[in-house]
Simulated assay, not measured.
Amino acid sequence: MAAPLETYQPHDTLANAASSTLQTTLVGAIIAGVQNTLTKQNVGARGIITRSGGIIALYAAVGATYQITKDSASNLREKDDLYSEAMAGFAGGSVVGIARRSMPMTLGAGVGFAVVMSAFRYTNGISGYRYMDADEDEVERKEALKKLRRRPLQETIEELGEGRGIYAPGWEERRRERLLAKYGIDVAAAQQTK
């Protein structure tokens, strides 16, 4: 029997766009501040806005366009997948080309952003691609992976030897015998006298 399909939960486009715009505007302001600091002329603190205001506006426009396109495409298609990410990447990247007033740059940046963003989504970002079964519990999956990769204790002892927190069953008795044979110290008797 096939698992029931999850119903699509629409995204709040305006709230997400406002949040993304704010974040990308802040990133743009930081980059503008760094550029303002590295200029040879002393332009003052207002130079962030007067000289580098276009960078801040560009970052804000890219963030807003990307998020509005992504949420709108997802809401219209009622799917949140990498195709929505690719459409949003193309729209956001195109803003960079439009700012340069170049059609080749518009298309190139749009395609470049679309490829990067859809690949990032397909590979599940930094954590990497992993097919997730809807019925699979994350804790059970991790426990199964631990058991799959766990090595037998005897194999570990053969490679590393005993000590450093790795002890085979019967280690205390073998230790007592070695100490008695080598140094003549009976550990069991010494522990009883305490």
Rank of each mutant, 00 (worst) to 15 (best):
E78H: 13
Y83A: 06
S72H: 05
G108S: 13
I68M: 14
S94A: 13
V111K: 02
G63W: 09
P104R: 09
T106E: 08
L82I: 10
D80L: 08
S127D: 13
M105T: 11
T69M: 11
K70D: 04
G128N: 07
Q67C: 14
M117W: 09
V115P: 02
E85M: 05
L76D: 02
M103V: 14
V111S: 00
D81A: 05
G63K: 10
V116E: 01
F120P: 00
P104E: 12
V111P: 01
D81L: 04
T123D: 03
D71M: 04
A99M: 06
A86Q: 01
A88V: 02
A73Y: 14
G125F: 00
K79A: 06
L76C: 06
G108R: 11
A64I: 12
L107Q: 07
M117Q: 13
N75T: 06
G125V: 00
A86G: 12
I68L: 15
R121W: 03
M117E: 15
S74E: 11
A99C: 05
G89A: 06
V116R: 00
G63S: 12
S72K: 11
G110P: 02
R130C: 03
V96A: 12
D80H: 10
A86C: 06
Q67L: 12
G108N: 13
R77D: 09
L107S: 08
M103Y: 09
I98L: 14
S74F: 11
S84V: 04
Y66G: 11
A64H: 05
A114F: 07
T123P: 01
G125I: 00
I68R: 10
A88K: 01
G89P: 06
Y122G: 15
L107V: 15
T65Q: 04
M105S: 15
G92N: 05
A91Q: 02
A86F: 07
D80M: 07
K79L: 06
G128E: 08
A119H: 05
G108T: 13
Q67A: 11
E78V: 07
T65S: 15
N124E: 13
F120G: 03
E85R: 07
A73W: 12
S102A: 07
D71W: 01
A88L: 01
A64T: 13
T106A: 14
T65G: 14
M103H: 02
F120L: 11
G93H: 04
F90R: 00
Y122P: 05
F120Q: 03
F113R: 09
R130P: 00
R121D: 15
T106N: 09
R100P: 01
N75L: 03
S72W: 05
V116T: 10
G97H: 04
L107G: 14
L107T: 11
K79F: 01
G108Y: 09
F113W: 14
N124G: 12
